[in-house]
Design a protein around this nucleic acid. Structure first.
Lengths: 159, 159
DNA sequence: TGGTCATTATTGCGAACACAATCATCTGCA
DNA sequence: TGCAGATGATTGTGTTCGCAATAATGACCA
């Protein structure tokens, strides 16, 4: 076990210095806590963040409806994940499934009036929560830096 | 359904402007893709990111061991989540459980030599992945801004 | 037209993990 | 000393979601 304390560095890897480590770790850890806080703020509305995202996405879609595969792509879910998540929303009556008359393979997820009302109910608490825990803590320069930073990361990932 | 297009704004909520929305959305979406990319880069080592974090945490602990409850706290897991995650690592032989002789309620998670070796094997690919997809895309000012931003968010959450 | 391949959605199965209940042990105080 | 409440770990149960297999349909091309 003594050799376990030998210096692990060796090859070409440049380990993270203090600043790099601080940036990486606070990013990871804070993301988790931030999401938990926002999720908790949504609880009184009876929506999870995942359900909320479905309702927002459908509300922004043409005719408040969307193909399952497009929904899955936007929500970063696999097809099966999208099916399962929609199951809950359908049970709650916030979304209905509708067969497409253009392509008989596709199933459309359609926002109901109840779903619209539920979204309306959850919208203000959600935005206020995002502001309180995140956006309103930052000034315009910080917001710009943040957006630019993650745009870079995203662009690199898309290569 | 016509009334569904009525203006949803009304109360005191300030909705997000373009910059705020861009910062928020790129942050959320990119985090997901970034984690997926890093997780994928770890796959050849046979470790999930979750398992890797356990090994790193234990390797940094005094005598390479830690109480379950402290491990759970650091890894942002519930006690039951920590128990379940450790199960896998124990099955793989990277960690052993040991009863504490100080407090007979506590179970110590102890890194094994095999666990140390596995960590050593995964360390370079992991750090390189974090650099490639994240750290090396940013200059020093951007890293400083990032660390400062999330430190603020974290501090606000801890109130 | 007919056949091959791509696309869309769902289901069975399994992994990860939170919640609540449970049990063992410790701490502090009367 | 003895008991009440706090603390630590685990297990049963349920939820969410990914992977692989399956089935249905569409698109393309010879």
């Amino acid at each position: 076990m003594v050799r376990m304390s030998s210096n692990i560095a060796a090859a070409q890897t440049r380990f993270l210095n203090d600043l790099e480590m601080a940036a990486w770790r606070t990013f990871i850890e804070t993301h988790y806590d931030l999401m938990a806080a926002i999720e908790a703020d949504m609880a009184p509305s009876g929506l999870t963040l995942g359900d909320y995202q479905v309702l927002v996405t459908l509300s922004e879609a043409d005719e408040h409806r969307m193909r399952m595969c497009d929904l899955a792509s936007i929500l970063q879910l696999t097809p099966s994940g999208a099916t399962r998540r929609l199951d809950g929303l359908v049970r709650s009556g916030w979304v209905v499934r509708l067969n497409s008359d253009v392509d008989r393979r596709v199933m459309l997820a359609v926002l109901t009036q109840a779903g619209w009302d539920k979204l309306h109910e959850a919208l203000h608490p959600h935005v206020n929560s995002v502001r309180e825990h995140f956006i309103d803590l930052l000034d315009e320069n910080e917001l710009r830096a943040l957006a630019s930073t993650f745009a870079k990361v995203r662009e690199a990932l898309e290569r």
